[in-house]
C-alpha cells in the first residue's frame, strides 16, 4: 500500500490533530490569563478551561489511537446523501465562498441584493442551471423575506441603497 492511500484511509488522523491543536490553544489561553484576578473564589476563571484543554488533548490522542487500531467514524447518512460517490469538495468550497461574499456584501449593498446573490450563487454551486428561473426565484425570495422580517415581524434587516431608492 502506498503512503498516500494509507493516509487517505486514515484522514481522520487530521481531525485528531485539529482537536489536539484546539486543546493546546485552550490551554495556552488559560495559562496566560491575568493571574491577579484569578484569586477570587477557590476556583478561578482558568480552572475549567484547563480541564477542557486537557480533555481535548487526551481525546485527540485516544481518537488517533482508535483510528490507528482500525476504528473509523461513520460518515452520517441522510435523505439526499450518497456515500457511494467520493466527496465533492469543490461544491463545498464554492458554497463557502458564496457565503463569505454574502457576509461582506450585506453591509454595503443591503439584504435584498446580497440575499438574492446568496441564494442564486448557492443554487448554481449545487448544480442548478436555469438561466432565467434561478435569479427570478432568488430575487423574489430575498425581497419577500426582507419585507416579512423587516416590516411584518419587526426583525430589522439592512435595506441598502436599493431600498432607499424605492
Amino acid at each position: 500500500m502506498s503512503p498516500k492511500t494509507w493516509l487517505r484511509e486514515r484522514s481522520e488522523l487530521g481531525f485528531g490533530a485539529l482537536l489536539f491543536l484546539l486543546g493546546v490553544l485552550v490551554l495556552t489561553d488559560a495559562l496566560t490569563l491575568d493571574a491577579d484576578l484569578t484569586g477570587r473564589g477557590p476556583v478561578g476563571p482558568a480552572t475549567v478551561p484547563l480541564v477542557v484543554g486537557c480533555g481535548l488533548v487526551v481525546v485527540a490522542v485516544l481518537l488517533s489511537l482508535d483510528v490507528l487500531r482500525g476504528g473509523r467514524g461513520e460518515a452520517e447518512a441522510g435523505e439526499d446523501v450518497d456515500l457511494s460517490e467520493p466527496a465533492d469538495w469543490r461544491t463545498v468550497l464554492l458554497l463557502a465562498g458564496v457565503f463569505l461574499a454574502f457576509a461582506v456584501l450585506i453591509g454595503p449593498v443591503g439584504f435584498p441584493v446580497a440575499g438574492a446573490l446568496l441564494f442564486w450563487g448557492s443554487a448554481y454551486a449545487l448544480g442548478s442551471r436555469h438561466l432565467h428561473r434561478d435569479p427570478l426565484i432568488a430575487a423574489t425570495l430575498s425581497l419577500l423575506t426582507y419585507v416579512v422580517f423587516d416590516k411584518l415581524l419587526g426583525v430589522p434587516l439592512p435595506g441598502g441603497p436599493l431600498m432607499g431608492v424605492i
Binding site: 452520517e76 441522510g78 435523505e79 439526499d80 446523501v81 450518497d82 456515500l83 460517490e85 466527496a87 465533492d88 469538495w89 461544491t91 463545498v92 458554497l95 463557502a96 454551486a125 449545487l126 448544480g127
Partner: peptide, 12 residues
C-alpha cells in the same frame, strides 16, 4: 455543506 459534498445525483 455535508449534503453538498455528497449530493445524490438522482433524488429519491
Amino acid at each position: 455543506l455535508w449534503v453538498a459534498a455528497h449530493l445524490r445525483r438522482t433524488a429519491g
